[in-house]
């Protein structure tokens, strides 16, 4: 290499390093890939929040739906709650997984803030949560009609998340054409 060009080596190294660091700015380290994508929703036998009746996996699959992991101790869940109601009103079935929560507090929350859920699965011990790979609320899973998990979103579901990521997948799962 010519001695002149050698002088540019530090600059070149800096550019490469800066490139990596710039990429790092837009990466979210909390956004872990789920190990359960394209795997069936785990089996469970738990109770329903409303009446304490037994709920099994077979009771909640059969049509494409969202499974929303929430709890009354989770602040972000309160943030996304109005949007979930909007989604439910537009016809998207949403099942709730009440994660490590108190039943009374959860029922009070639903009667005060409204109830967007078809039914709520009580996961007091977090066993279903562990099987799903949940590590905090809120998390939202997109499950197709065959009971296969297609996508996992960690964090609040809002209009932007729905429009940019969930809705295209939702349409795909339903077998609809892509939105123009």
């Amino acid at each position: 290499m010519a001695p002149r060009l050698k002088l540019f080596l530090p600059l070149l190294l800096f550019v490469v390093l800066a490139g990596f660091l710039y990429r790092g700015l837009s990466l979210d380290p909390m956004n872990l890939p789920s190990a359960l994508i394209d795997r069936p929703l785990p089996d469970f036998t738990l109770t329903a929040l409303a009446d304490g009746g037994v709920l099994r996996r077979a009771d909640v699959i059969g049509e494409a739906a969202l499974f929303n992991v929430w709890a009354t101790w989770c602040i972000s869940c309160r943030v996304e709650h109005p949007y979930l109601q909007q989604l439910a009103a537009s016809g998207v079935p949403i099942f709730g997984i009440n994660y490590k929560d108190e039943d009374d507090a959860a029922r009070r929350w639903l009667s005060e803030l409204g109830d967007p859920y078809r039914v709520n699965i009580v996961d007091k011990e977090g066993t279903l949560g562990v099987d799903l790979g949940v590590y905090g609320a809120p998390e939202t899973y997109l499950v197709d009609a065959g009971g296969v998990i297609r996508y996992r979103h960690v964090g609040v579901v809002d209009e932007r998340v729905w429009r940019d990521t969930l809705e295209p997948l939702w349409r795909e799962v339903l077998g609809l054409e892509q939105a123009p």
Binding site: L32, P33, S34, A35, L36, V130, D131, L132, G133, Y135
Partner: peptide, 8 residues
């Protein structure tokens, strides 16, 4: 653990 939370 890996089946639920991935290699992470």
């Amino acid at each position: 653990m890996v089946a639920r939370y991935g290699e992470f």
